[in-house]
Design a protein around this nucleic acid. Structure first.
Length: 272
DNA sequence: AGATTCGGCGT
DNA sequence: ACGCCGAATCT
């Protein structure tokens, strides 16, 4: 095996290595491929793959995979839309690698072992200090989501969703929109079931009894009836979306044929 | 089987 | 022109 240069990657958490290998044959000879290795040794060969693995731990929004550096101002490139056409603003858009919520990303301040005891007679060494089960999270960080609103292309603020009355907030500022944000982000980040705060004590002193892996929401129950209502809403929304996309598609097609016609009329072969 | 390497599709 | 990932090839 050829000795590959694996360099540290300062933009990533400690232990991550970057490697660049030059292609030495074929049509693409001279080009290079970049790989990353996790502290545990897993190999990564693309930004989406890396992003999937790191989840919300690290915001790769402005991470440049090829150079391995954070590039400020790479927040998002505006596809230079060819002239007017407001509809085009509603289109486009990638899977969105920039999905990190506004949680502190500085958890590495609390680097786990200061002194690492690797062996001690008669003692067992705790396994896997690297990946302590979960990074510390700020209590009530959801408050940062307060006031976030969605708007359409004309800056018109969209009406916020109504939550069932069965859903109630817990902790400071249990106002409506924060509750929605808390639940939405919980669903977005966690793959485990969302139950709300089940400990009764959390009601009186959330600062102590809060279950940080659950949103700031009281425990709740969901009825079959509510599920059916929601399914109906989703169906209706999909219908609307379908109609809108269809209308947009037709408009787009019309625009294209118009452009082709203009092109033809201005070309020498048109004889005009 | 797993690692390595280049092709080629999609943007 | 390049990112990403399938798959052929190598060990």
């Amino acid at each position: 095996m050829m000795e590959k240069k694996r360099s540290d990657c300062p933009a990533l958490p400690p232990g991550w290595k970057k490697e660049e290998v030059i292609r030495k044959s074929g049509l693409s000879a001279g080009k290079s491929d970049v790989y990353y290795y996790s502290p545990s040794g897993k190999k990564f060969r693309s930004k989406p793959q890396l992003s999937r693995y790191l989840g919300n731990k690290v915001d790769l929004g402005c991470f440049d995979f090829r150079t391995g550096k954070m590039m400020p101002g790479k927040l998002q490139k505006s596809k230079q839309r060819l002239r007017h056409d407001p509809l085009s603003l509603a289109k486009g858009g990638k899977p969105d690698l920039n999905t990190a919520l506004p949680i502190r990303q500085t958890a590495s301040i609390f680097k786990q072992p200061v002194t690492k005891v690797t062996s001690h007679p008669g003692n067992k060494v705790k396994a896997d200090l690297q990946r302590a089960s979960e990074q510390p999270r700020q209590l009530f960080w959801e408050r940062r989501l307060k006031g976030l609103q969605s708007s359409d292309v004309t800056e018109e603020v969209l009406r916020t969703m109504d939550l069932p009355i069965g859903l109630q907030g817990v902790g400071p500022d249990s106002s409506g929109d924060t509750l929605l944000s808390a639940i939405a982000s919980a669903l977005h980040m966690s793959s485990t079931p969302i139950t709300g705060q089940t400990a009764a004590a959390a009601e009186k002193n959330p600062a102590i009894w809060l279950n940080t892996s659950q949103p700031l929401c009281r425990a709740f129950t969901v009825t079959d009836e509510q599920i059916r209502e929601q399914e109906l809403k989703v169906h209706q929304a999909r219908r609307s979306l379908e109609d809108a996309l269809m209308a947009d598609g037709l408009a787009r097609a019309a625009e294209n044929t118009r452009e082709q016609l203009e092109e033809f009329l201005c070309s020498p072969t048109s004889g005009l």
